[in-house]
Computed example of a mutant assay.
Amino acid sequence: MRFLRPVAAIAALTLLAGATDPNNPTCPAEPDWGPAKAMALTPRVVDGAHVLVAEGIIDSTLPQRLKEAIDKDDQLAEIWMRSRGGDARAGNEAGKIIRSFPGMVTRIPAGWTCFSACNFLFMGGDRRFVDDGGFFMVHMFTHTGDREAIYLAAEEGTAETVRLIADIEQQSALLASEDNDFLIRMGVSRKLLTDIMYRQQAVKTADNPSTRYCLSQEEVRRYNVVPEERAG
């Protein structure tokens, strides 16, 4: 199979030399993770190859829409993606759908960012590429992002606080189990979770404002996000 080199690579040198996020120094200051609306799936032909461009927020309708889009084109070779994330479980399911199509390539082109639930979508590829200047951006998946709910529970008293903490613990444990299962299925090292994702702050604090991490080219290979034997 011939793998594409996206025309967006022209922007790579500019991006690599650009500003970084002072709070998340491995990442760009202004990530290009696509439009702030439900993920669009746009078929294109690039250098004679059929590509599906997936860009936007992952919602509960994505798995079915993605399957339909792939089914429509038996010549589809690659799925290019940029997204700020969205529904984690929908991203997980959509990644499994991609994996059900043998040989499907997923790619993060130069200048684009795949964050949060998009990670699952990307890892669904049978072959995976993060082009130079593309960003596989991760954080710690958590159910504690709604700080207002926590503050309110604390104000309402001990019983409500305990209930909320118990719910957070249960949901986070389930999500962690799902994360591990997904990585095993996709052939990605589980150390991606322990070494990188779970070491990020769930919520920004004054002492530690970093909540995101962008893997380097060496790291995407070390953790088999991009399989070494298939890279290139």
Rank of each mutant, 00 (worst) to 15 (best):
P28Q: 08
C214D: 01
T205K: 04
P6D: 00
M186K: 05
P31R: 10
A173N: 05
Q200I: 02
R5F: 10
I98W: 04
R127D: 15
K204P: 08
G86I: 03
C114W: 04
P102V: 04
R89V: 14
D47E: 12
Q201M: 11
Y223P: 06
L174W: 13
T194H: 00
D195F: 00
A77Q: 15
A149C: 07
A36V: 04
P209S: 05
G157Y: 03
P28N: 03
L13H: 14
P28T: 10
V46S: 07
G91I: 12
M123Q: 12
P31C: 08
P6L: 01
E148S: 15
P35A: 14
N180W: 09
G133S: 03
N23Q: 15
G157I: 04
V7E: 13
E55S: 06
G125P: 09
A12V: 07
Q75M: 14
D32P: 06
A49G: 12
E178Y: 02
L215R: 09
V220I: 15
R147I: 15
F122W: 04
Y151R: 15
M137K: 09
T142Y: 02
M197I: 10
L76S: 11
S172I: 04
R163Y: 02
A8D: 06
D47C: 05
A19H: 01
I196S: 06
L192Y: 03
R163E: 09
I108C: 03
A166I: 04
L174C: 05
A69P: 13
T161W: 13
P31Y: 08
H143V: 08
R163L: 11
D32I: 07
T161V: 02
G125M: 05
L66F: 04
E228G: 14
D181K: 14
D131T: 07
M197D: 03
H139V: 00
F135Y: 09
E30I: 07
W80P: 04
P209V: 01
A159R: 10
P102C: 03
H50K: 14
T113P: 00
L152W: 15
P22W: 12
V105L: 15
A90I: 02
D59T: 15
V130E: 08
V226L: 03
S177T: 14
L164V: 02
T42W: 11
V203S: 01
A19Q: 09
G125Y: 13
M104T: 06
L174I: 06
R128Q: 06
L175C: 05
S210C: 07
F182W: 13
E93V: 06
A159K: 09
P6H: 00
L4A: 08
L13D: 13
R221P: 08
D195Q: 00
R190T: 11
N119G: 06
S210I: 03
R212L: 12
Y213M: 06
E169G: 14
V188L: 09
L215V: 13
R89T: 12
A110D: 06
H143R: 11
V138N: 02
D71M: 07
D132F: 13
G91C: 11
S116M: 01
H139N: 01
P43L: 06
A166G: 07
T106S: 09
V220L: 14
I97W: 00
E160T: 12
I79R: 10
R65E: 09
G157L: 10
A54Q: 08
A94L: 00
A202Q: 15
D59C: 13
A94C: 01
G91A: 12
